[in-house]
Amino acid sequence: MTNILVVDDDWNILKLVSIHLTEQGFHVFNAKDGIEALHILKREVCHLAVVDVMMPFMDGYALTEAIRKQYNIPVILLTAKNQIEDKEQGYQAGTDDYLVKPFELKELSFRIKALLRRYDHQQDPSMIRIGKTTINKKSYEVQIGEKTILLPLKEFELLYFLMSKPMQVFSRDYLIEHIWGIDYEGDERTVDVHIKRLRERFSKLTDDFQIKTVRGVGYSLEAQRS
């Protein structure tokens, strides 16, 4: 199911948009400000964000910039303003589309579907890039600038999995099941060993990402904030 993040400090708008998008077949996460939205993005896989401009703590422009630095998802900005300067600021922040309040819910869903189609067409799921680091599942190579690195199979698959879902935390059991398979007879220390090897390989080569230990839970790949 496609997950949509809707961020607005107006509860009435959150409720209306959430009901409409749910009826359209989307799963909706609601946030009342930019800080809450970033917490949701760390926990959940979201495929598109609908972001209000005027919010407390972190406005929509700042949130859009933060999303653009960490996640490769489309953003639609909502605003009560229709000035060209406001639109310019929105596009400079990295928004993909712009909708002025009051808006028709049907138009919002049309724009969401159009952006999702465009992103699906542009993305190559076999290749992931974070900063200057690219991992290619077709060639099983990791490229950092001009340097090409070949990894043992399970190290590659583990790194690819974590890079494909940055900022999300995965337990050792979950990683065992997805990388080694449910029939694997080893224990979760296998994950620790492979994480250690990946850290040793890449800590001196790049600061594009770090694999963090989340105490009592598991591991998460953290992309560099530019």
Rank of each mutant, 00 (worst) to 15 (best):
Val142Lys: 01
Asn72Val: 06
Ile67Thr: 03
Asp59Pro: 00
Ser109Gln: 07
Ile76Glu: 09
Glu104Ser: 15
Asp86His: 11
Ile179Ala: 08
Arg172Ala: 14
Gln89Ile: 07
Gln168His: 15
Lys165Gln: 15
Gln92Tyr: 07
Glu104Phe: 13
Lys154Met: 11
Asp124Lys: 09
Lys154Phe: 07
Lys101Ser: 02
Ile67Cys: 01
Phe103Lys: 03
Met163Lys: 08
Phe110Ser: 12
Met127Ala: 12
Asn72Thr: 11
Asn136Met: 01
Ala80Thr: 12
His178Phe: 02
Tyr119Asn: 10
Met54Val: 05
Glu141Ser: 11
Ile182Phe: 04
Asp96Leu: 05
Ile144Arg: 04
Asp183His: 14
Ser171Asn: 10
Ile144Asp: 08
Arg111Ser: 04
Glu157Asn: 15
Pro102Ile: 14
Met58Asn: 03
Glu107Tyr: 08
Thr133Asn: 06
Glu141Met: 11
Asp59Tyr: 05
Gly145His: 06
Gln123Met: 12
Ile135His: 02
Leu78Phe: 13
Leu116Thr: 07
Arg117Pro: 00
Tyr160Leu: 13
Glu141Ala: 12
Arg117His: 05
Asp120Gln: 15
Leu159Asn: 09
Phe110Pro: 00
Lys69Gly: 00
Lys87Thr: 03
Leu63His: 10
His178Pro: 00
Gln168Cys: 06
Pro152Leu: 14
Asn136Arg: 00
Asp173Gly: 11
His178Lys: 14
Phe110Arg: 14
Leu108Gln: 09
Ile76Tyr: 01
Lys113Asn: 11
Arg129Leu: 03
Gly131Trp: 03
Asn136His: 05
Arg118Thr: 12
Ala80Pro: 01
Ile76Asp: 04
Leu150Val: 14
Thr134Gln: 09
Pro56Lys: 12
Glu141Tyr: 07
Leu162Gln: 07
Leu116Arg: 06
Glu141Asn: 09
Thr79Arg: 02
Ala114Cys: 03
Phe103Ala: 06
Phe156Asp: 06
Asp96Ala: 05
Leu105Glu: 11
Tyr174Ser: 09
Leu99Thr: 05
His178Leu: 07
Ile144Gly: 01
Tyr174Arg: 10
Arg117Val: 05
Ile128His: 10
Lys87Val: 02
Ile128Cys: 05
Gln123Trp: 05
Phe161His: 13
Ala114Thr: 15
Gly90Trp: 04
Pro56Ser: 13
Gly181Leu: 10
Phe110Asp: 15
Glu141Lys: 12
Asp124Phe: 01
Ala114Phe: 02
Ile130His: 08
Gln123Glu: 13
Pro152Ser: 10
His178Ser: 03
Ile128Val: 13
Gln92Leu: 13
Gln89Met: 12
Leu77Lys: 04
Tyr98Met: 05
Leu116Val: 06
Ala66Pro: 02
Met55Asp: 08
Phe170Glu: 08
Lys147Gln: 15
